[in-house]
Design a protein around this nucleic acid. Structure first.
Length: 421
RNA sequence: GGCGGGUUACCCGAGUGGCCAAAGGGAGCUGACUGUAAAUCAGCCGCGGAAUGCUUCGGGGGUUCGAAUCCCUCACCCGCCA
């Protein structure tokens, strides 16, 4: 068995662990059953969860047994966060999101073989739990002082908004999940993001008190950007893994635009490339940054991981065609159609629609005022040519193969205007 | 149940009768420079072919020539007391 811990450390995937020596021994001694939970708080997982999925996959590849937990129960309560009390989602919504998350998680793990992954839902052991049993069997192990000291709880308590009993209780539910998985499957390790450290310890402590066993916790660091801004922010919000919430094209573009200062770190965290390969790419960034080899590999690897090889090939080809130096008019209909397949689109009428209307129709601008501003700023392009007249009409002579025109806002926001279909 | 504080544009937050479409900051957008990068600098940042125009300051109603600002009422949030 490889020394998975040092591998993970090198990749920058470990922020904190409980007793590091004991954990190293356990991992070296044989297959460890571990779990990571995902709460259905949105219709899709995002970049943050991706780190957890990658970590789970590394551990499974090293021979350990993954339990992927979807929080059908915890998702109905809400993990307290600093931005304030969550709005509760109804049961049907939570159930639907749970199903979507389950499908997203499955592709990252291997459900066959000696260390096959298993999917669990904490609603299975929580739904029937009575209030009395909850308070007697679980609550008795929790000390209020410890619960109140948890960072998020303490800060929320001190905030103007305060915290509801519902969210305050969240840590108990998550702690109980660990205990339940320990009992059912012999699970002895929980992983998660560093912001989950308190919740992980809740489970470690509960298993210790209630079951008399020592179990482990390990967290991944918060992924950051060298410039200090938040990682994973895009125009659409987060970097979603679901193709219906972020197109594979946009997903690919997100990774492709990674800053030089960040790209090597991201290759370590988000890809399964080995040290040698990453070393080569690191040298490439230093020697010829303008070639952006590392960014291209990063985008390709992560897009393949999340959306599959076929989708990745399509969006990569599209990116090359649309951002290439070649003349758009030389592209044949098939190539062009493929290239713009993943790009936002809008209907226009040749001979009538102006550039301003086209920006709005394609969703590149949210209002005509904004579109006019964009044109005024010199940020509007039709078929890669700058347009400065807001009343410029898109004519038949502007149409490329297949009766479409390429509309662009700024350096890299593309959309296709269609006249038919 | 009582008393007090609060609800402003994507977020934070100023504004207590006209000079407020509403300070400031953040986020965001565009341009220049580049490498579909970072940093820097500049402009923009409710809608509106643009007007002494329209819609906005938790919801509704009222006072006034005129309200985000005053009054009534409803909703929600926070705190103290019970």
């Amino acid at each position: 068995m490889t020394d998975i811990l040092s591998e993970l450390r090198w990749r920058g995937l470990i922020a904190q662990t409980t007793d590091a020596e004991a954990l190293a021994e356990a991992l070296a001694a044989g297959p460890v059953t571990y779990y990571c939970g995902f709460d259905p708080t949105a219709p899709s997982l995002h970049h943050g969860h991706l780190v957890q999925l990658v970590l789970m996959r590394h551990l499974q590849r090293a021979g350990h047994r993954p339990l992927a937990l979807v929080g059908g129960a915890t998702g109905m309560i809400g993990d307290p966060r600093m931005s304030g009390e969550r709005v509760l989602n109804d049961k049907e919504t939570v159930a639907a999101w749970t199903d979507r998350l389950r499908a997203q998680i499955e592709r990252f793990l291997d459900f066959s073989g000696d260390n096959a992954a298993r999917m669990v839902n904490n609603l299975d052991w929580t739904a029937e739990l009575s209030a009395i049993d909850f308070l007697r069997d679980i609550g008795k192990h929790y000390r209020l002082g410890t619960m109140l000291a948890k960072e998020t709880v303490a800060r929320r308590l001190a905030s103007e908004e305060g915290i509801s009993f519902t969210e305050f209780s969240y840590q108990i539910l998550q702690g109980n999940d660990f205990r339940e998985l320990f009992r059912r499957y012999g699970c002895t390790l929980q992983t998660g993001g560093n912001d989950q450290w308190g919740n992980l310890l809740s489970g470690v402590d509960l298993v210790h008190k209630a079951e008399g066993a020592r179990v482990h916790a390990m967290t991944t660091p918060l992924i950051t950007k060298a410039d200090g801004t938040k990682f994973g922010k895009t125009e659409g919000g987060a970097v979603w893994l679901a193709p219906d919430m972020m197109s594979p094209y946009a997903f690919f573009q997100f990774w492709l635009n990674t800053a030089d200062a960040d790209v090597v770190g991201y290759l370590k965290v988000f890809t399964f490339l080995d040290r040698e390969r990453i070393g080569e790419l690191e040298a490439a960034v230093a020697e010829r940054p303008q070639a952006r080899e590392a960014q291209r590999v990063l985008a390709r690897e992560v897009t393949t991981l999340v959306h599959g090889a076929d989708a990745c090939e399509r969006v990569e080809a599209a990116s090359a065609a649309l951002f290439g130096r070649g003349d758009l008019r030389t592209l044949d209909e098939g190539t062009l159609a493929d290239a713009v397949a993943e790009v936002p689109r809008g209907r226009v009428t040749a001979g009538e629609t102006t550039i301003v209307d086209a920006l709005v129709a394609t969703g590149l601008s949210s209002s005509r005022s904004e579109a006019r501003r964009t044109v005024g700023d010199g940020g509007a392009y039709l078929n890669n040519e700058k347009i400065t007249d807001p009343d410029r009409v898109i004519g038949a002579e502007d149409l490329l193969a297949g009766g479409v025109a390429l509309v662009r806002r700024g350096r890299r926001n593309l959309a296709v205007a269609t006249t038919q279909g």
